[in-house]
Design a protein around this nucleic acid. Sequence first.
DNA 1: CGTATGCTCAAACGATCGTTTGAACCGGCC
DNA 2: GGCCGGTTCAAACGATCGTTTGAGCATACG
Lengths: 208, 208
Amino acid sequence: MVSPVNSSGSTKERILGAAELLFAQRGFDGASLRQLTTAAGVNLAAVNYHFGSKDKLVEEVFRRRLDALNARRLAALARIAGAPETTLENVLEAFIRPALELSHDESGALFMRVLARAFAEHDDSLRQFLSTNYGHVMRQFTAEFARLLPQLSKEELYWRIDLVTGALTHAMSGFGMIQRKSDVSERAHREQTAQHLIRFAVAGLSHP
Amino acid sequence: MVSPVNSSGSTKERILGAAELLFAQRGFDGASLRQLTTAAGVNLAAVNYHFGSKDKLVEEVFRRRLDALNARRLAALARIAGAPETTLENVLEAFIRPALELSHDESGALFMRVLARAFAEHDDSLRQFLSTNYGHVMRQFTAEFARLLPQLSKEELYWRIDLVTGALTHAMSGFGMIQRKSDVSERAHREQTAQHLIRFAVAGLSHP
DNA sequence: CGTATGCTCAAACGATCGTTTGAACCGGCC
DNA sequence: GGCCGGTTCAAACGATCGTTTGAGCATACG
């Protein structure tokens, strides 16, 4: 069953909000346009009118969030990249903090689950979309990791980054869960999460 | 398009084999019973006749592999649990090695991708099936981790195990990929994979 | 006022889904 | 031979999917 939460805003924004929620809960295939438009309080045909197709809607859900998220990541990286006093923690914080801040509000947290789903599902067209549009972000971070870990071979570095990515994706996919005790403790929990993630990633990247 | 690989064996076994392949490639919802039965070279109605429903087929795909896999994990754990000379590496090897050996043959490797998908998709009924049938395995490993890492609080330990699980799942989901250069180098690559995973996991679990 | 434009609406389209049906087939046993 | 439980088969069922259609409505502009 889908609760019709007719949140305010334009038709496009209502669709994007409902899509984020339902994609996180049921996956891209699992959420139908009828559930989606009912939850958004708009007509069924509105999706194809405003976005062209369901696939284009999926891409737009990603674009709306990832443009801002990755811009903030790159800005944070640019402030520290190449500097002699920069540490591994600094780089990891530049990557993780924007994601954690995005997930401070509920819809942002839902999006992190959508993102984790996208990584898990090996859908080729979606992976290609993410790679062509946001591949340069990971490339810049990888270059900085390589600078800070010169003792690692390229292959070794890629292995470790891949494993860290898996751990982060897995952890962040749990953000949009239903249960939580209170908003205040949730925010504290998120700060604690950042600490765990960063210390874990540092250990995984820089172990001898 | 689905290539009709009519591999030998009973109807049930042919269905299970084709299901493993198609579930890994397209997910549980994405693979239809018509694609599946065509690939297996059996009639469409055979799935419901032999398994009752598509959901029951999914469970059977897991049960066939996980019964053997987790039995070997627990046997390996039993040989070292509680011993004073046991190291963190030993416990992690007891967990990872059986999975790597399972993925030595192609169908086993495909199953690891199916398993990774199951973790990614937050399908409640499937997660509950896995939890009730195989939850005791992770519980026994957790107990041994707790013994070897007494300095960690329960919460800290759960966090680290969760992150390690995410990294391993992410890494193993890439096993069933198509490209590989030769069988010999692939086996060597898998041994290298085990080394990377275990050293990474040790660092992530035991870092100060 | 008339009309053009952007948007919403109910309804329908064809395709595909999981499942069910009832007849056909097949081995072994009385 | 005759029957029977287990299995396979083509065909159909109702449901749901993404998408399209064409009429209807609103606002802005001449």
